[in-house]
């Protein structure tokens, strides 16, 4: 739950329905810490894309798993981390989407990672032990 110290940690079940609920908590936490609404919108879309990828691809079984999301607000920057103990996967190695071809030729998909890269200022992936860790940074003007 939200803390007044600029830190938020969420443990999400690997169910897509959990993403919208998490977005509400992220919004409350960020608003309380002076993050502008437009920045909150971008952060929540980037988180959605990252968490959706994790839930859909990290675990080949149908079992219960957990996605860990943490947010830290320091000065005028949000640092968000999404991590899981699923199969090693670096989303930043996904090839960029085709943004040029016409309607019929345009591939369906491949946009999620593009959104994360476009909306955030910095994105980094690391494999930490048995975990995938995606770190996203977004700066915002002083409130």
């Amino acid at each position: 739950m939200s803390g007044a110290d600029g830190l938020l940690t969420l443990r999400l079940p690997n169910r897509l329905a959990a993403i919208a609920e998490a977005a509400e908590e992220v919004e409350r936490f960020c608003a309380a810490n002076g993050v502008p609404p437009a920045v909150i919108g971008h952060l929540n879309l980037a988180l959605d894309e990252a968490i959706t990828n994790t839930i859909e691809y990290a675990w080949p079984d149908d079992g219960d798993h957990e996605v860990l999301v943490s947010l830290a607000i320091e000065a005028a920057e949000i640092v968000a981390e999404v991590s899981d103990d699923g199969a090693a996967f670096d989303p930043l190695k996904v090839p960029p989407p085709d943004l040029e071809s016409d309607l019929q030729a345009r591939p369906v998909g491949g946009l999620g990672v593009h959104f994360v890269k476009t909306l955030m200022d910095e994105v980094a992936y690391r494999r930490a032990g048995r975990r995938n860790v995606l770190t996203m940074r977004k700066r915002f003007g002083a409130p």
Partner: peptide, 20 residues
């Protein structure tokens, strides 16, 4: 109120199907 890449994918599929 909100759309992600998953929603866009559906819109693209509709556009393709209709134009076909």
């Amino acid at each position: 109120d909100y759309i992600s890449s998953s929603g866009l994918r559906l819109v693209l599929m509709m556009g393709k199907r209709l134009s076909l």
